[in-house]
Simulated assay, not measured.
Amino acid sequence: MMYLHRYLRLTPVLAMAILIYMKILPISGDGPLYGSVTFDNYTICEQTWYWSLLYVQNYATDTICLGHSWYLAVDMQLYIISPLLLIALYKWGKKGAAAISVLMLLLAAGLFITMVIGKHSIFSHTSDAMPTIYFSTHTRASPYLVGILFGYFLHANRGVAVKLNRTVVSLGWLISLALLFTCIFSLYGYHNNNKALPIVNEAFNLTLTRIAWPLGLCWVVFACMHGYGGLANSFLSSPLWQPLSKLSYSAYIFHMFIESLNGGITRTNTFFSDYQVMLRFWGDFGLTLLLAFFVYILIEAPFGNLENLLLSTHRTKKKQPDLDAQQKTVGAIEAPATDSTPAPALVTISPLPEVRTKEKPTNN
């Protein structure tokens, strides 16, 4: 049932996006670059759309319909195998956690070896780098396993009061922010100066950042849960994020359409400036949220309600035989006797005669 819920949760919006990408987006604009920006190749979906709806497009084909949908395939595949990891943690506890840790390190080592031996470079845009080390689930599993282990840690220590002194809290935040900012800015020097990045350096960077980033986020969650989040907790737990959380999935699916359309209709040279970048960002962001709102209202929310209705009906039917059996049992206990045979008369038994004992004289 959990797999059906996941599939019904993701697929309607994805299917509508594929349809719009194939039939509507090609006629939505024109220009010298239209149809050739980023991932635009509208004919790809005619041959590979079904792989996307099966969530195996990251392995089944080299030409993915909706290029950014590779993440959905990775997420779905990891979701499918996650019960096996949870069973291991449930049955073997710390031993299961140790096994998952070893698996995480082996997958990270496999990514490093694949990049170094095969010379697969995302930085240098080698032809086979994206399907080999960027789209594949086994090279993306390490952060997911970090999350599984962290969830097990929180579950094993639920209800335990955690008291940390100011020094430990400050050190935790310092390490967390250092990990996060290192993941973001570690390659800034190479990008800024157009330097060639050695494949070993890139392999180390890609392998370690995929573990360092979730570790940094783990501390943020841990600190906020136990009262050490401060302003970060107030910001992240603000109710203002709730409306955006409803639109996040649709925004993820359709944001590339806005960027592709804006890039394709460009007819003149563009000149970089901070203001132009901010203007472009907020324009794309606003249109993406507006489109995501309509998608949520027209597709995501109705299908979600329909799914809840169908699954709740299924659960009700499943519980109905048990309720009927209980009602029959209660009825059998409470129902009066319908036998016409009269009950036997009560027999009155006379009490036993009182036995008297002689009192022995007492010697004073």
Rank of each mutant, 00 (worst) to 15 (best):
L8K: 00
L10D: 02
L10E: 02
T11D: 03
T11F: 06
P12Q: 08
P12T: 07
L14Q: 04
L14T: 06
Y21S: 03
K23I: 15
L33K: 03
S36K: 14
S36R: 12
N41K: 09
N41F: 06
I44Q: 04
I44R: 04
C45P: 03
E46F: 11
Q47P: 02
Y50G: 02
W51I: 01
W51E: 00
Q57M: 06
T63C: 04
G67Y: 00
H68Q: 13
S69C: 06
V74H: 00
I80M: 15
S82W: 09
I87Y: 08
I87P: 00
Y90W: 14
W92C: 04
A97L: 03
A99S: 13
A99H: 03
L107F: 07
L107H: 03
A108N: 12
A108M: 15
L111W: 01
I117D: 13
I117W: 14
K119W: 03
H120C: 01
I122T: 01
S124G: 08
D128P: 01
M130K: 09
T137N: 06
H138I: 07
I148C: 05
I148E: 01
F150N: 09
L154I: 11
V160S: 13
V160A: 14
V160G: 09
L164R: 03
N165Y: 04
T167G: 03
V168Y: 10
S170P: 00
W173L: 11
A178Q: 12
A178T: 15
L179W: 00
L179M: 05
L179Q: 00
L180M: 14
F185R: 06
S186L: 12
N192K: 06
K195I: 11
A196T: 14
L197C: 07
P198I: 10
V200E: 14
N201H: 09
A203G: 07
N205A: 06
R210P: 02
R210E: 07
R210F: 05
I211Y: 11
W213Q: 11
L215Q: 07
L217M: 15
C218M: 13
G227K: 07
Y228C: 07
L231H: 05
P239F: 06
W241T: 08
P243Q: 10
S248R: 06
S250E: 02
A251K: 01
Y252G: 02
I253S: 01
M256D: 00
F257P: 00
F257Q: 00
G263I: 04
I265F: 07
N269F: 10
F271S: 09
F272W: 14
Y275L: 14
F281R: 06
F285W: 10
L289V: 08
L290H: 04
L290C: 12
A292F: 02
F293S: 11
F294C: 09
Y296R: 06
I297A: 13
I297E: 13
E300L: 02
A301S: 13
F303H: 04
S312H: 12
D322C: 09
Q326D: 08
G331Y: 05
A332K: 14
S340Y: 05
T341V: 10
P342F: 06
A345K: 10
L346E: 15
V347E: 11
S350F: 05
L352Q: 14
P353H: 10
K358D: 12
K360I: 14
P361G: 09
